[in-house]
Every structure is written in structure tokens, then in C-alpha cells.
Design a protein around this nucleic acid. Sequence first.
DNA 1: CGCTGACCCTGACGGC
DNA 2: TGCCGTCAGGGTCAGC
Length: 270
Amino acid sequence: MPELPEVETTRRGVEPYAAGQTVQKLVVRNASLRWPVPAALPRLLRGQKIEAVERRAKYLLFRTPTGTVIIHLGMSGSLRVLAADDPPAKHDHIDIVLESGRCLRYNDPRRFGCCLWLPDGESHALLEGLGPEPLGPSFDGALLFRKSRRRKGPVKQFIMDGKIVVGVGNIYANEALYLAGIRPDRAAGRISLARYERLAMHIKQVLTSAIEQGGTTLRDFVGGDGKPGYFAQQLYVYGREGEPCKQCGRMLKKSTLGQRTTVYCVACQR
DNA sequence: CGCTGACCCTGACGGC
DNA sequence: TGCCGTCAGGGTCAGC
């Protein structure tokens, strides 16, 4: 489920229950995620106080005095707050059990996610070289324009490249390009500054509104079925191939770019 | 450096 | 009902 809005919604849902809590223990039922959960993690984490729950790109960061737990939800992961004695279900791979008697439970059917340890003061390859946050002040059209010069690849793959800007997943890349009126397969290096300013604005807008809508279903992260308000978002193109464009009525086209489904309107996007 | 495609894994869904 | 192919919101990595 996780695009950036879902990860941020998860962070906000989990933070009140985790921040300030001491970790009683870590239960690892299945360590084989994208990378193995470090065997030493339970020992390293026990007794540590979670000082803050942060997010960088789509990584959730649990800060403790001696290091940081890095969690990525991959394609199918979720993190929920449950009673520690709640019986685990299928694909419930990890529990971070807290002093409060609750736990943060990581579930991930496809196991594309990860749970890693970053010792205090060290850096991690996964977090190095990442582009700016899309909702931060340093992300704008000028940055996209500057970084795209000489690039021949499609603009959709360009804005989904975490070295350029983080957190723009397939759904919102499709949506932002539609709203900006830009064809997804246009060469990144052949788009004007003015159009990139429009695109950056729509990226910020679509992510912001998705996060706001996620906020309305925050309670789902606590004890519920863990399904955030994903499709509460009004989608213009994603998942609508073959249906009429909401602006001009033409049938939306589907193609594949970088092995990801791409949907667009041939009339409204140029 | 930029770009492409393979790959990691399970589950849902449609066609037959 | 079952089997099979296809597809899925993530990202890394090797190779050219």
C-alpha cells in the first residue's frame, strides 16, 4: 500500500504510541525481508528508548540513543499498533513490543520491505544520495529543470528517481503528470522551466491532499485492519485506463514505462 | 553518468 | 472448482 502519503500517515499514527516508549523486546518471526533483519537487532534494541519517529523518503526512522531502526514498507507492508498479546496473523513478521503493553506490528506479504539498524553516528547507504523531500522547501521546478538537462529518459521515470526527488511513487507520478498536462513519456531534458514549475506544484499538491485524507483514517492504524484511506484520494488517471478523461472525455491510454503502468490522456497531456 | 531490464515475493483476479 | 497467466502502490543492482 505505501506511497509517501501512506508512509507519512503511518508515521503520524504510530508516533503517539511509540515516542517516549522503551522497547521491552523485539520479536522477529521471519527475518527474510528485502535484506535479512539483523540477528543482533533484538539485543541492540532491548531497553532502548524511542526518542522520535521520523520519516525520510519512504523510510520510517525510529531514533534511539544508540542508533536508529530503519523500516521500509516495500510494496505491501504495513505497521500497526496492537496489544502486545494480540495473536499474530499471517505475514506478521516483526513486533516491536513496548513497555506500554502495546506493540508495533510489521506485516508484509511480499517481503519487499526491510528492517535495519543504523548505529548512532554512522550513515547508511540507503539514506545517502537521496534527493530532497517533495514537500520540503528545496524541491521546486527549478531543481527539476536543472537536474533534467541532457536527460533523454521519460519524465515519469525522472520524477520517480529518488536521487532527483524522493517519495513520488507510481500513482502520484501518473496523477501529477496528468494535472500538469505533461506526457509521461516526454524526454525529461526537453521540458521547459515553466512546465517543471507546474509539475513541481502539482506533485506537492497531490501528495499534500493525499496526506490530509490519510489523516482522516488514522484510527485504522490502531487495532483495526490497517488499511489507510488509500483510494479515498480522487484519482484522475491511475487505474482508469480505458475510461474517459475527466477533462476532455477522451479514452485514457495505458502504456508501460520502466516496467510500471502508466496512464495518461493523449489530448490533455503533451 | 544515464538508462534498461532482471529480480526480490505473495496474493488477487480474470479467462478457460 | 481449479489451473494458469498477469499484474500489483517498492527499490536495488548489474550491465551496457
